[in-house]
Structures are given as C-alpha cells and as structure tokens.
Write a protein that binds this DNA or RNA. Structure first.
Lengths: 211, 211
DNA sequence: AAAAATACTGAGGAATAACTCGCTTTTCTA
DNA sequence: TAGAAAAGCGAGTTATTCCTCAGTATTTTT
C-alpha cells in the first residue's frame, strides 16, 4: 500500500527517567539483534526479548519496526557528521596529502563501531525515502565541499573538480566499507596507508605540484 | 530452522518445449519483479503474476523463492566469468595501462545489464552459503591472478602484491557499482577514463617505469 | 482417437511476524 | 498515603507470505 506512509515518530515522549532508559535499552538491543540476525530475521519480538521487555512496551516507544531502524541509522549518520565537523574545527591542513590522510582517518573512525551493523543499516534494510534523501544530500554536500577546495587550489588544471571529489569520497567510503567485510589485511594501518597512497597518487596526477 | 537446508534444485526437468519457455518466463519475470520491488517485496505470487502464470506452475519449476534468486545470480556470475575468459582469450596486453583499461571495460561490461538487479542480487538478498563461497572464491582467484601478474613484472618493488591486487579489484568493482547508483556523470566514458586514471596513477606509484 | 504423460490452475493451509489493547505494576504528586 | 499518571505486560488479532494439492487442460504417444 504505497499510499499509506507509515508513522515514524515515537508515540510517547519519556516523562520519567526510567522510560528514557527503556528507550535506550530498546535501541541498544535492536543494534545487537540486527548485528546477529540481519534485518529481516531481526523481529520486533526478538528485539523486545533481547531488551528484557515485553513487546507491548517496545511499541510504546516506536510505532513500528522501521522507526527503530531509522533511529539507529540517524545515530550513525550523526556520528559521521560530528566526526567531519570536529576534523574541520581542528583546522584544515594546507597540504593535500595531509588532508587526504585526515579524510581517510575520519572515514575509518566512522566505521569503527560495528561494521556488520553498518552493513545491515545501509545495504540490507529498506530505507524510507526521507532517509535516503538525507543520506544523498549529505554525501552531495561533502562532495561539493571537497570540489570547492580542489577548485581553490588548482584553478584550471582540473577538468572536472566535482567528479574528482566524487571519486575521492566514493573511493574512500566504498573501500573502507569493503575492507571491513573482506579484511584483506589484519592490520588496519596497512590498509589505511595503502588507501592514502591510492588517493594521493590520483590527486597528484590531477593536482600537479602541490606545496 | 537452521538445521533444515532448503532444496535448491528444480523439481521438474522440462520435457516439452512449452515448459522450457515457461521456466524462462519465470526467470525473466523474477528479474523484472526484483528490479521493481526489491527482494522482500518481490513475492512469488507477484512473480507468477508477472509471468502470466499461476503460482502453482511456478512451484513446478522452482522448489522455493531462493532457488529463483539463485538461478538469477548464477546467470549473472556466469556472464562475468565469460567476460573475463573472453578478455583473456583475446590475449593480455603487455602494457599495464592497457591491462587496466581492459579490466575496467570488462567490469563495465558485466554491469551493463540492470544495475538495480545487481544490487538486489548482491546486497539486498539472503545468499545461501554455497553461493557466497562461490562468489568469494571467484573474487579471490581474480585477486590472485592479478597479484601474480604484478609480481612477475615488479620483482621486489612491491611490498604486498596481493594487497595491491585487492585494491585494483575492489576499487574497480565498488566504483563501477556505485557509478550506476549515483551517476555522477551522464557519460559512461568520462567515468571510465577517470577510473582508469585513478588505477594507473596508483599502479605507477607502485610499479615505476613500466615499459 | 483413446490413453498416458506432461503442464497448468488457484483456492486455501500453514507459518510467521507486525502490531493492539485491556489490564497490572510502578512511580509521582499533593 | 491515597489517588493519578506513567510505564510495563503479553496473549491474541491481523496481515502477509510461502507453498501444497486436488483437479483441469494440453500435448504426446500408441
């Protein structure tokens, strides 16, 4: 029934301290259940069970299963956003090689939680259009920011700054993601260095003679 | 019930020409349905409907839903395998830049069908362990082959040929995949050239002075 | 052209999972 | 400390989906 959008907001705002904790318990339990069972087999009954609650209580706080997933996804996105903001706050290095390193580290940082959860959230689960749009605009903003930085430094050496920025962002995200799924090396720092090598090689080809 | 593996083989081998066509209709309809509705909402009833068949007929040819998915996935994999084999048959260029171009083109070729189907098959659907193993060993073989080629050309310039090969394969697959989801450029050939630039830049850093 | 084999039908059984609601327990307030 | 409000409970309802099976239609064989 595509004409009936599901409610995604909580039906009750916590009044007592106890209920705030309960809500949190549900979210934490959901993360564990999704990690272990995946989205489809991560039933609401199982989540309630894992949280040590009755199914009824769960539905006091979340109107449906997707709302729980949405909460988890939002938290994940916010972590990423905060990581980027914090990095920018600490000041952007002038050198592109260092910028790339910072960028890669931030991406790794964002995936430092449980990669399996990340996989469930972003690949296995149905995402409501609103969230999809949010994700898309977030990535687009990041690409645009980096494109601006590229343009500022390179003037007309670069045929298509936005495309280059897209490559930087996509490569970093995709390979980081894939690293945790595949684990081609046990040592994260080896992966980190190699990814940085890949990106800087690309940039140096496009951005000659950075100082 | 993890203890009860589902049968995945067809329950009936076609005797009449008609039934071979019916089987094919089911597979084609399943592809369309999965593309439009995704895996979970791509119900067997919907597939039967799309194929213009009764649900009972569908179950004459496939013992369960996953068997249909498996058939689609196997076909997809076989296409990729054939593309690689054909490329190798035509002879491998001596120059690494051309090898990279060939590699990228083969990847693009494999995704030339419907990227959305590819996404459903490889990211959204539950894959039986047997298929997962098949996929993994296929990718591993490809990584190993390329690692061998790298080692043959570079002797000890390369700290970790297997990791470099992993980066080549993963970057190509991930970015190709992502390209079709994001469409950062309308022109595929622009993307192609940029991806080749990325990979050759990486290789030239690792494989200095190729001739 | 009758009999046999193959192919197709679709209502409904069986299973499962999302979600409700009347009731109980706990906490807060005056 | 009594009444009210908030939080919690869980058997049961609703909805959906996979899949069966008894019967019908079509094709092949003799």
């Amino acid at each position: 029934m595509p004409g009936t959008p599901k409610p995604l907001r909580p039906r009750k705002s916590p009044r007592q301290q106890r209920s705030a904790e309960t809500r949190e318990r549900i979210v934490q339990a959901a993360a564990r259940v999704f990690i272990e069972h995946g989205y489809a087999a991560g039933t609401t009954n199982r989540i309630a069970d894992e949280a040590g609650l009755s199914i009824g209580s769960l539905y006091q706080y979340f109107p449906n299963k997707d709302a729980i997933l949405l909460e988890l996804t939002r938290r994940h996105i916010d972590e990423g956003r905060r990581a980027v903001a914090a990095a920018l706050d600490r000041g952007l290095p002038a050198d592109w090689d260092e910028r790339v390193a910072l960028f890669v580290d931030t991406a790794l940082e964002a995936h430092r939680g449980d990669p399996r959860l990340h996989q469930v959230l972003f690949e296995e689960s149905p995402r409501p259009p609103a969230l999809l749009a949010e994700l898309h605009s977030l990535q687009k903003a990041l690409v645009e920011t980096i494109a601006e930085l590229l343009r500022a430094d390179v003037e007309d050496h670069l045929p298509d700054a936005r495309l280059a920025a897209w490559f930087l962002v996509s490569t970093t995200e995709s390979l980081t993601h894939r690293y945790f799924a595949d684990r081609p090396t046990d040592d994260v720092s080896v992966f980190r260095d190699e990814l940085i090598a890949l990106l800087t090689a690309y940039l140096h080809r496009q951005v000659p003679a950075q100082k």
